[in-house]
Amino acid sequence: MNNKIKSLHLGIAILAFTIICPMFASAQVPPRFYWKSLAGGQAVPVIFQSLNANANPLDPSSFIPSDAQVEANVATVGYAIMLPMFDRTLTLAILEPMGRVSGTTTIAGKSYNEDATGFGDPTLEVGYNLIGPKAIKNIPDMLRYEPKFSLDLIVDIAFPIGEYDNDQSLNLGQNRWYGRVGAPIVWQIGPWVPGRRTTLELFPSVWFYSDNTDFVGQTLSTDPLFHLEAHLTRDITEHFWASFDTTWKAGGKASLDGVEGSSLNTLAVGITLGYQINDNLSLTAGYMTTVNDSDPGDMQMDAFRISFTYGWHPMVQGMNRLKSE
């Protein structure tokens, strides 16, 4: 029985470390990320996240000790390109997380410390616009762009090639395939005039995970996780905007060799401020924290995020050169 409890506690501790990993490995993108740009336009986003959690943010089961501490400092670098396909916008993106993560928890009087550094699993994202403006194929299209009601279908798939140590539960790589299917929505509210733009952005998605069969000698399974992001964004000036953010996660119950955690029901809110520094570079800074975390067993998590996105298009670059002449 003691062995069983010990085993259970160990499993819970492992879960406390591991299930958080998808959270930062699959870095959330900032609001306004799914606005469309000129076909052929390319962008490099760099997203820094610093995250703290006192418990497993995905599995706030009541029997999990509340003293687990996970800290992660992760940067996600990506590349994205927009292309026209059948007159609609196709977006291809790849995101590569990297950084360090460390965690501590005490189970049955024993302290567990782990840390990991390096590269995480790269994620390929394919997005296709189903409803909304047609592909922006030239500058007149770009000048006329208004999202009105825009809905994309996106598919993410993470390749299990990131740093992984099967002797510890805390890794940047996941050693399993996972990904999601989602439908980001941008809903324009009111005029599309810089300085006055307002959007409601919803991003429902479902994450799917394969099993990790080499997880500290055990098999980690995770149920599908429903994830809903919502952003109410509003221009403050022509180049400066703010967003009220909320995210809700449900499901995603993990089990380790049959030892089950609990399904998630985590609600977090936050704000993001964005600034368009120039035609090429934009900046966002945001903070998010859990709100349904008052009970001892609830997950508490907060995260800071700063992102830079550098975008370019030969036509825009050419126009800028002409302006300078």
């Binding site: 000048l143 005029p191 005039v193 810089p194 006055r196």
Partner: peptide, 10 residues
């Protein structure tokens, strides 16, 4: 002050 083309008419 509403000089942006998308504001034309406002």
């Amino acid at each position: 002050s509403q000089t942006h083309p998308n504001a034309w008419g406002d």
